[in-house]
Amino acid sequence: MTVESPAELTVRAPERAPAAPPAAEDPAGGAAIVTRGLTKRFRGGQVAVDGLDLTVPAGSVFGFLGPNGSGKTTTIRMLLGLVAPTGGTHELLGLPLARALPAVGAVVEGPAFYPYLSGSANLLRFDAANPAASGRDAARRVGRALERVGLSAAAGKRYRAYSLGMRQRLAIAAALLTPRRLLVLDEPTNGLDPQGTREVRALVKEIAGDGTTVFVSSHLLAEVEQMCTHAGIMSHGRLVAHGTLTELHAGRSARLRVETPDLAHAAGILASLGLADVRAAGEEVTAELGEHAPDRVNAELVRQGVAVRGLAVARPSLEEVFVGLTGEGFDVDG
């Protein structure tokens, strides 16, 4: 791993301290995660991640999107130092991994805890493994983390008796034990019911609201679209696109959809206004909106006596973006 310039960092800690989340701006130009040519070739010769160049801006909610088996989890394991890359470099928060990790919370491939321990005992266990956390106020930290995910009432219950949603929330609580600058969440809503999914999404938004960078992997396009400011799309171990959601959408323009019985009339007006790709079918006319303002288009239609029953602007979904980029369908069931 390369270290850009750790000397510039201000660390509010004694010199011996292994790591503390530095409060100063990181020197990597505000990037929470940077990878350069990150590659993992497994012993069998199979390439799981192939030359990944990824930049996750600090403060963003980054959706790491891709079907199952596209190399998302292997990438996350490399980022967290669980798996050694066979090529390339990466850094978190502009720091060497060992110093960055205390400032990174992670949920990797679902929750894993000691079944015979209670929720709070489990959190104390992982808190003890963090060299940047002091034992003195561990209980307070654990209590706060449990409260944050709404598990205070179940703190004394054995993990064995937890429901899937509670387990997932406990894993997030473990990731939130100490203040984090980066949160890595691998499929955080996997296996949750709609209620649990909503809770997790709300939690992610709240965490992001505090200024924490959130890196969330998912195979659910809708989820990423709802939660994220940025996204990267993985396919067969390669990053096929990444940027802000707006940037990703930019390639495909939004379409205007007009519901009306006067198909021919409406189509003629839209064409005369200069909208491209005008199509009429059934009871609606669609066209590429381009730079036109939908309200102006509507006013013109009404002025010329078209009976407008409905008018909508359809942004292209990430799925369409994905299909456009890879020419493949997206496995939504996962």
């Binding site: 509010r12 800690a13 004694p14 011996r16 301290a17 292994p18 790591a19 503390a20 989340p21 409060a23 205390p102 000691y114 321990l117 104390l124 266990r125 003890a128 493994a129 060299p131 940047a132 956390a133 002091s134 034992g135 003195r136 106020d137 100490t178 203040p179 984090r180 600058r181 505090d210 200024g211 924490t212």
Partner: peptide, 28 residues
């Protein structure tokens, strides 16, 4: 970063190891 102030001072290397060992012993 607003959360950084809440961070406790990290302990020394030995006390960190000792804390993990205590946790391990409690588990065992």
């Amino acid at each position: 970063m607003s959360t950084a102030e809440a961070l406790v001072l990290p302990a020394t290397r030995t006390s960190v190891t000792w804390r993990l060992l205590r946790s391990e012993l409690a588990l065992t």
